[in-house]
């Protein structure tokens, strides 16, 4: 394939990765920002979202769209409730101490993973996309005959992948409105800035924490429901999203939601675009190393304040 169309293809694919990543990372970012804890089980909430989507769609049957819509409503809600329960049962009792939270959430990770293995099984299971047309894409170039449009071999995307990008954007806007325009959003932001003062003003901080933890998990699950028609549900699928969203949150700057969005796009796209120039594994090595170097020279993250 020619360089131009190849780059365009890689960019489009990068955008899909970034779209999913932004939702998952946003979930972690909110939790991290408000509660200041590293939730190692975040990837497992993502996995649960995908697995529940499979259960819902295979239970309902019928046209894939019915199951998909049901999954997008049910899976994040259920995962959010599970996460809120975990917060009430465990994290609340360890006072959100950073070290203990790591051990506690590793424990939760084991429990969720093993339970899924026992109920869902070790296989990768696909979920049908509600719609999935292959769309060939044109390319424009100046040739001897002037400006020409042609259809390069292999340059295409699917309607569902475009939908994923659009859906992620919609969720982002809704989330932004929720955090800035609603009372609950205001309370969350107040708790994030200073939980003690918030408490003094009568904010039920414990409840807010549970909601935040549930919301974070629900966002991860939502990302997973969107991704599961592209990838498949598998009980070990949580590790990658955990690492990537963790990286995104820190690169973006702790507690900065715009930073998280920018970092997700940067990381999602760079992975795709660097792969145009190098052999795949080398591209991965370079991408990982470069992102790490961003942090080395800007430890507070892209949009973070200096005092972290």
């Amino acid at each position: 394939m020619d360089f131009g169309p190849h780059l365009m293809l890689a960019t489009l694919e990068g955008a899909v990765i970034a779209a999913i990543l932004v939702l998952t990372a946003m979930g972690l970012s909110i939790v991290f920002g408000v509660m200041r804890v590293v939730n190692v089980a975040h990837g497992e909430f993502y996995m649960l979202g995908a697995v529940l989507a499979w259960f819902v769609t295979s239970f309902l049957g019928g046209h894939p769209a019915i199951g998909f819509v049901a999954a997008i409503l049910i899976a994040p809600l259920l995962v959010g409730l599970i996460a809120a329960a975990a917060d009430q049962l465990v994290l609340k009792h360890i006072d959100y101490d950073p070290d203990r939270t790591i051990v506690g959430t590793i424990g939760i990770l084991f429990i969720i993973q093993q339970t899924t293995l026992m109920t869902f099984g070790p296989e990768a299971r696909p979920v049908a996309a509600p719609f999935n047309q292959r769309l060939a894409l044109p390319w424009f170039e100046f040739t001897d005959n002037g400006f020409e449009m042609f259809w390069p071999w292999g340059l295409s995307i699917t309607s569902y992948k475009l939908f994923v990008i659009a859906a992620a954007l919609t969720v982002l806007v809704a989330l932004w409105l929720f955090l800035t325009r609603t009372r609950i959003g205001l309370i969350m932001r107040a708790t994030q800035q200073d939980s003690e003062t918030a408490q003094a003003f009568g904010v039920p901080v414990g409840l807010v924490y549970s909601c935040v933890f549930g919301l974070g998990a629900a966002l991860a699950a939502l990302g997973a429901v969107l991704v599961v028609p592209i990838q498949q549900a598998h009980y070990l699928m949580g590790a990658d999203p955990l690492l990537l969203s963790f990286i995104v949150v820190i690169i973006g700057g702790l507690g900065s939601l715009p930073g998280t969005v920018i970092a997700a796009i940067l990381i999602g796209m760079s992975d795709g675009i660097i792969s145009v120039f190098f052999s795949p594994t080398l591209a991965k090595i370079i991408a990982t190393f470069l992102v790490a170097m961003v942090l080395v020279f800007r430890p507070q993250g892209l949009l973070g304040r200096t005092s972290t």
Binding site: V103, I106, G107, Q114
Partner: peptide, 9 residues
Amino acid sequence: GLVLVLLTM
């Protein structure tokens, strides 16, 4: 997993 959770609690 359960032991880890209990232990940290």
